[in-house]
């Protein structure tokens, strides 16, 4: 981890850190990296990754449509809306 990578990460995550925050974050990354020895110590060669702690499967719903909310309600808290649309600055392709 270095400042260059950190700046790329900030961009990717739509955040901007101050110099002081960047320094603190770099130190944070170093600290986490040091902890990884505890993970490295565990042999996981033949271990299957565990995404879900409960072994459920096929949690599915029937294909039935419904519309319990109005557009007005959904846009009541919108920072900017126009004519039933959410509004943002012009995007470019």
């Amino acid at each position: 981890m270095n400042k260059e990578v950190l700046i790329r990460l900030e961009k990717l995550n739509q955040l901007r850190l101050t110099d002081e925050q960047e320094a603190a974050t770099l130190a944070f990354f170093d600290e986490r990296e040091a902890e990884m020895t505890a993970l490295d110590a565990i042999d996981t060669t033949d271990v299957v990754r565990m995404v879900h702690v409960m072994p459920l499967e096929n949690v599915l719903r029937e294909d039935v449509a419904s519309q319990p909310f109005t557009r007005e309600a959904l846009q009541a808290g919108a920072p900017a809306a126009e004519d039933g649309y959410w509004q943002v600055p012009r995007t470019v392709d």
Binding site: Y85, W86, T91
Partner: peptide, 11 residues
């Protein structure tokens, strides 16, 4: 939808 008049994008 791009709104040229107001220079905004509608979602």
């Amino acid at each position: 939808v791009h709104d040229t008049l107001s220079n905004t994008t509608l979602v």
